[in-house]
Amino acid sequence: MNSIQTDKIRKLVEKIPARATSDGAGVKLLRVFSGPRAERFDPFLMLDEFGSESADDYIAGFPPHPHRGFETITYMLQGKMEHQDHMGNIGLLSDGGVQWMTAGRGVIHSEMPKQTEGKMHGFQLWLNLAAEDKMQPACYEDISPDDLPVVKFDGFEITAIAGQSVINQKAVTGKVQQVKTEPTYTDFRVAQLSDIEIEIADDKTVLLYCYQGEILVSDDKVKLTEQQLGRLSAQGKISLNAAPNSRFLLIAGTPLNQPIAQHGPFVMNTFAEIEQAIRDYQNGQLTA
């Protein structure tokens, strides 16, 4: 890992409530963050939480739609979703699994529920690509839950989807390692009241999303409760106190510090490139 000022504690600098919205063909979800001033989340672009016991909230799914210029990371806690894309990939995302898709120069895919009842609960994170990587060929990977490292601590356990960190003095390495943005993506499941110390390299963007229970952040003990995102300061280690039966995501990455131009499913560096993506899609050349 890169350097970290272990004598400093990262502070909570912004608290954001998730907002109810819908996407796809009417799927009800929570938009945790996105939109204006996107640079403060760099290299991340958006996080959605979807979760409902009612099939009416998710059954219409996400019919075929395009993307260009970034990656989508879908983490399914519970439920079944089928992915299909223009490359001929078909994958079933189910309880505990991850779908990591690099849209690159272009992908057209669908994400459709493979259940008609029961709970569906998960997250989709958008991760930006560097300018020089945006037009790379699209690729796709299904990661089964058996391939995701699960690390147990006294009072809590984590699933390490991506990246590297040190948690309560134990080095943790996730399944996926990316060179440019160095994303860390970790799911914490807390059984008992727990003090948690996390070391992440300085100058990385660090986000915490509490989706169950509550956590106290930093030595200031600022509270994050259900459906709240916290953005932390740039330097130092992370100090948390997590209540019993809490669950939260740790998301961290190295900023690209490049211009962000976004229009719906396209994320480029200039609006001229966005206009080109739209023309390519309209002309059937997005994925060519």
Rank of each mutant, 00 (worst) to 15 (best):
I196W: 04
L232T: 07
L129D: 09
F70N: 01
R247T: 05
Y75L: 14
E14K: 15
V267S: 02
P255S: 14
N283V: 00
E141I: 01
A130H: 14
G155R: 09
D219K: 09
L208H: 03
A131D: 15
E14N: 11
G97L: 09
I73E: 00
T287G: 04
Q99F: 03
G91N: 14
P137M: 13
A288N: 14
F271S: 00
E117N: 13
Q258F: 00
R105V: 03
I73H: 03
Q177N: 11
D195Q: 13
S54C: 02
I16D: 09
A138S: 15
Q99G: 02
R19M: 08
T6K: 15
E157F: 12
L240D: 02
Q212F: 04
C139R: 15
T74H: 11
V190S: 02
M112A: 12
I108L: 13
Q285A: 11
P43A: 08
N257G: 00
G97D: 12
G61M: 08
Q115T: 08
G118Q: 11
Q228H: 14
K15A: 05
S34G: 12
N257R: 08
A243D: 11
Q164T: 13
N168G: 06
V32D: 01
Q258A: 07
V166S: 10
G253I: 03
I4R: 04
V107G: 01
A288D: 15
D7V: 06
Q258H: 05
L224M: 09
Q169L: 09
Q276N: 12
F44Y: 11
T6M: 05
M120K: 04
H83Q: 09
I196E: 07
T184W: 00
M81H: 08
L224F: 04
Y58F: 15
E111G: 07
K114E: 14
N245E: 15
S165R: 02
Q84Y: 07
I196N: 05
V267A: 01
P17T: 10
Q262Y: 00
L216V: 01
H83V: 03
D146W: 01
Q276K: 12
H65M: 07
K15I: 14
P66E: 06
A55R: 08
D57N: 10
P149E: 10
K223V: 15
R68T: 11
N241P: 00
I251L: 08
M268I: 04
D95T: 12
S194G: 07
A234T: 03
F50L: 11
A201L: 07
G104T: 10
W126A: 09
P66N: 11
A201S: 15
L224C: 08
F44W: 13
D146R: 11
A243Y: 12
V107D: 09
E275W: 02
L193C: 06
D23V: 10
N89P: 00
K119Y: 11
K180H: 06
Y209G: 00
C210L: 04
G213D: 04
G104M: 14
D56N: 14
G79H: 06
I196P: 05
L127M: 14
E14L: 12
A20D: 12
P137I: 09
C139K: 15
F70E: 01
G79L: 03
G230W: 02
K170Y: 02
Y75A: 10
I238S: 05
L93T: 08
T184C: 10
L12W: 05
T74V: 08
V217T: 05
L207V: 05
Q124V: 12
N245D: 12
M76A: 03
N89C: 03
Q136V: 11
F153W: 08
E214H: 10
S52P: 06
